[in-house]
Every structure is written in C-alpha cells, then in structure tokens.
Simulated scan of single mutants.
Amino acid sequence: MPKMKTHSGSKKRFRRSGTGKIMRAKAYKSHILTKKSTKRKRGFRQETELAAADAKVINARLAGR
C-alpha cells in the first residue's frame, strides 16, 4: 500500500511548535482594518495554540493518516 500524503491545506495553515503543540494564525486580520485598534491588530500577529478538540484531527492530517 502506498504512503499516505500530508493534507496540503493543513500543512499551509498549521505548524508544530518545538514542544509539539499545533499552532495556528489568528482570524480577523485580512480586511476592514480601519475600525480595529492598533493594539487589537498587533494581537492578531501572534500565533496561538490550536484547541485540543481540533488538534486531534489536524494532527492526523499533518501526520498523513
């Protein structure tokens, strides 16, 4: 049986941290930025850890299972 491929969409959107957590980018950074405060927009730059419920699914997609 051939090897399973890593899910291409997932590999572009998520990364694994040094400690093994799955990290994701924050939402709401793409448009309508004029009404959002500078402090709020600055917060969108940092990555955040993926929720545990979602991490199980994404982990399988990144592992190619």
Rank of each mutant, 00 (worst) to 15 (best):
G43N: 05
G20T: 10
K39S: 15
R61W: 11
R16E: 14
A52R: 15
T34Y: 07
K56A: 13
F14R: 13
A60R: 14
K39F: 01
I58S: 06
G20W: 13
M4Y: 14
M23N: 06
A25D: 04
F14S: 13
R13Q: 08
Y28F: 12
L50F: 05
T19V: 11
M23S: 06
R40T: 08
R42S: 11
K26Q: 13
T38M: 10
K39E: 08
S30F: 13
P2Y: 06
S17K: 08
K56N: 04
A27W: 05
G18A: 15
R13E: 01
K29E: 02
T48R: 14
K26E: 03
R15C: 11
K12N: 12
H31N: 04
L50N: 05
K12E: 09
G18I: 08
P2G: 12
H31M: 00
D54Y: 07
H31G: 02
A51P: 00
R61A: 10
R42Q: 11
M1Q: 10
A55E: 09
Q46F: 12
F14N: 11
K11F: 14
K12I: 12
L33E: 00
K3E: 05
A27L: 02
K12C: 07
R65K: 12
R15M: 13
V57N: 11
T34R: 15
G43Q: 10
A63V: 04
R13Y: 06
R61S: 08
F14E: 04
R61F: 15
L33I: 03
H7S: 07
K3Q: 13
Y28Q: 06
I32V: 09
R61G: 07
K11A: 14
K56L: 09
M23I: 08
R15V: 13
F44T: 07
Y28P: 00
L33N: 12
A51Q: 08
T48N: 02
T38R: 15
G20M: 12
A52K: 15
K26V: 05
M1E: 08
M1Y: 08
A51V: 01
I32Q: 07
S17A: 15
I22L: 14
R24L: 04
K56I: 11
R16H: 03
H7E: 10
A27E: 04
S30L: 11
R13N: 10
R13I: 00
E47I: 01
K29L: 02
D54N: 11
A53E: 01
T48F: 01
K56D: 06
G43L: 04
T6K: 14
I32F: 12
A52D: 02
K41N: 04
L50W: 07
I22P: 00
K41S: 01
K41T: 05
A63M: 11
E47W: 02
P2D: 03
I58K: 13
T19G: 10
L62I: 01
M23P: 00
S30Y: 10
I32R: 15
M4C: 11
R16L: 14
R13D: 02
D54G: 00
T38G: 09
Y28T: 05
S37A: 12
G18W: 08
F44N: 10
R40D: 01
T34L: 01
H31A: 06
T48Y: 02
R13H: 14
V57R: 15
S17T: 12
G9I: 02
D54K: 14
A52Y: 06
T48M: 03
K21R: 13
L33T: 03
R65P: 06
